[in-house]
């Protein structure tokens, strides 16, 4: 059996640049396989209050995001995927991709690509891939089966499946039913995220065939409560849960 993916999300430069570096310097050792870094958008369409708040803080404090991204890639070896909304870059995508390339990040994930740009998503996927940047596609239960199947063939690294409508808000859902619906359709690695803050839910997801989980809001809540060490402890705990599968 191959190793299950632990995908960690952190907002770029949160809570401050020093602590952010401290966090990423340690995540590899604590068992993170892929790092997602959020670049603050003007409208965090599918983010809950916790991540929205981090965007506000960061965008007030940090001027040059790309310098920090470059530094991140100097410090860790695991793949780094940028998470931000296409809406904001759609008119200057070439510039944006170039900056990502110069920062040496591995990939990009636009949560709104298959939702608000579904008519032209293949065009954008090609543009990104042509720059040598990996494209992690974001899917959700509100997408039709056909699209999820297509996306799972196009995506790099893994297919992201956001099981709740927004990050961090723990809307009641049946994770196992949601994964059962798509598991046989998805040929790529399937990583499940959005509101996965209970070990019970994570175990449910893994037992019906998820290849990994993505966590963000609960890491930020740990950082806010117990500092970076708290977040690293949570990562260790989650790694332990995933290693049971």
């Amino acid at each position: 059996m191959s190793k299950k993916y632990l995908v960690a999300y952190m907002t770029l430069g949160y809570p401050n640049v020093n602590d952010f570096y401290k966090f990423i310097d340690n995540i590899e050792d604590f068992g993170v396989d892929i790092l997602e870094i959020g670049i603050p958008p003007k409208y965090a369409k599918y983010d809950g209050p916790v991540i929205r708040k981090t965007y506000k803080i960061v965008s007030n404090n940090i001027k040059n995001y790309y310098e920090i991204l470059y530094e991140v890639k100097q410090r860790i070896k695991i793949p780094v995927v940028i998470l931000t909304y296409l809406e904001e870059y759609v008119d200057k995508l070439g510039d944006f991709l170039l900056k990502l390339k110069e920062s040496r990040v591995d990939g990009v994930l636009f949560p709104d690509l298959l939702i608000d740009y579904v008519d032209e998503y293949e065009k954008y996927v090609n543009l990104i891939k042509n720059e040598g940047i990996k494209t992690v596609l974001f899917t959700a239960p509100l997408m039709p089966d056909d699209l999820i199947i297509k996306a799972s063939k196009l995506t790099d690294l893994f297919l992201y499946y956001g099981v709740r409508p927004t990050t961090g808000v723990v809307i009641p859902i049946s994770i196992d039913s949601l994964i059962n619906r798509i598991r046989t359709m998805v040929q790529s690695k399937l990583v499940v995220g959005f509101g996965l803050n209970s070990i019970e839910d994570i175990k449910k997801a893994m037992s019906v065939g998820a290849d990994g989980i993505a966590v963000g809001t609960s890491l930020i809540e740990e950082v806010d409560k117990n500092g970076v060490n708290g977040a690293l402890e949570l990562i260790k705990k989650l790694r332990g849960v995933l290693d049971e599968y």
């Binding site: 409208y43 599918y46 809950g48 209050p49 939702i115």
Partner: peptide, 24 residues
């Protein structure tokens, strides 16, 4: 019908700069 729709159904959203989360 959602799994059989021709396109993704845009998800419910919180407004930009919302002072509280409607989804919550």
């Amino acid at each position: 019908i959602i799994p059989d729709l021709p396109k993704p159904l845009p998800p419910p959203r919180d407004p930009q700069d919302a002072e509280f989360s409607r989804i919550d």
